[in-house]
């Protein structure tokens, strides 16, 4: 199962390190990553593969929630299908 991890917030040191570190610790592979500054906000979007990891989306987002609060970011984890169904015919 593929999921999209979205990180939005004020730019600061260590965002990528902490988020990708958390994914690595939980044995989650990052398939694609894009990072940009959108409307003055740091925006990182990762496509991750949850196969092989024991974590379901819910547990993953609980883990990332800690980083979210720590670093004052907004982090979402959602299954990929929501975006593909909404934006592709």
């Amino acid at each position: 199962m593929k999921a999209v991890v979205t990180v939005v917030g004020k730019d600061k040191k260590g965002i990528i390190a902490r988020v990708s570190g958390a994914l690595f610790e939980n044995d989650i592979n990052i398939l694609d990553i894009s990072q940009t500054i959108m409307q003055d906000m740091f925006t990182m979007i990762m496509l991750v593969d949850l196969e092989g990891s024991e974590l379901a989306v819910k547990q993953l987002s609980d883990k990332l929630h800690i980083i979210e609060q720590d670093m004052e970011l907004s982090i979402h984890v959602q299954r990929e299908e929501i975006f593909s169904s909404m934006h592709r015919i």
Binding site: T6, V8, L47, E80, F83
Partner: peptide, 16 residues
Amino acid sequence: MINPFEIIETINMIDK
């Protein structure tokens, strides 16, 4: 991968 703008659009629709 899906366009980042589309991803952010969806998230904004839900959050805001």
